[in-house]
């Protein structure tokens, strides 16, 4: 892709969402509203914000684009690893390393929610206050 063009971007992060993006030299640009939906962070005057927490951004020109927000730059600022396939319109964004280190060294398991066989969601925290044995396996 040689210049800006508009086509869908599917972002696989905490959840999977598809939005319309402007593609500039293989970098997807999304609207500020879409950013909130995709990564759960808002672009404000203070920087990148989630509820009452803000990450200051020294050089806003790395994030702001004529057509919206450079989501790859946002991922980088938030220390979230990302892999993109521009031709397929797919972007996957992982969790920051600090989340893993908190669990590994702080010995605190992050909460998560998974569906049961009928599709009903269950969270690990549903059993808070009790001893829990977590079994991960593959049926192959």
């Amino acid at each position: 892709m040689t210049g800006p063009g508009r086509r869908p971007l599917t972002v696989i992060a905490g959840q999977t969402s598809t939005v319309e993006a402007v593609w500039d030299d293989q970098r997807p640009i999304v609207s500020a509203e879409a950013l909130g939906e995709l990564l759960d962070w808002e672009w404000r005057a203070e920087g990148l914000c989630r509820e009452t927490v803000c990450v200051p951004v020294a050089d806003r020109s790395h994030v702001e684009h004529d057509e919206g927000i450079d989501i790859l730059s946002v991922a980088e600022i938030l220390d979230r690893p990302a892999v993109i396939d521009p031709d397929a319109g797919l972007l996957v964004v992982g969790q920051p390393a600090t989340d893993r280190l908190e669990a590994l060294h702080g010995r605190r398991a992050p909460d998560f929610t998974l569906p049961d066989l009928t599709g009903s969601p269950h969270s690990f925290s549903d059993w808070a206050g009790r001893k829990r044995l977590l079994v991960a396996f593959a049926s192959w």
Binding site: P81, V92, V93, G94, A97
Partner: peptide, 23 residues
Amino acid sequence: HTVADLTGDEVKARLHFRLAAHA
């Protein structure tokens, strides 16, 4: 025992895997 963190390659591999599974 403290489990060692993933390397950069291991993190990236998991992202490629996740993208592949979606595709």
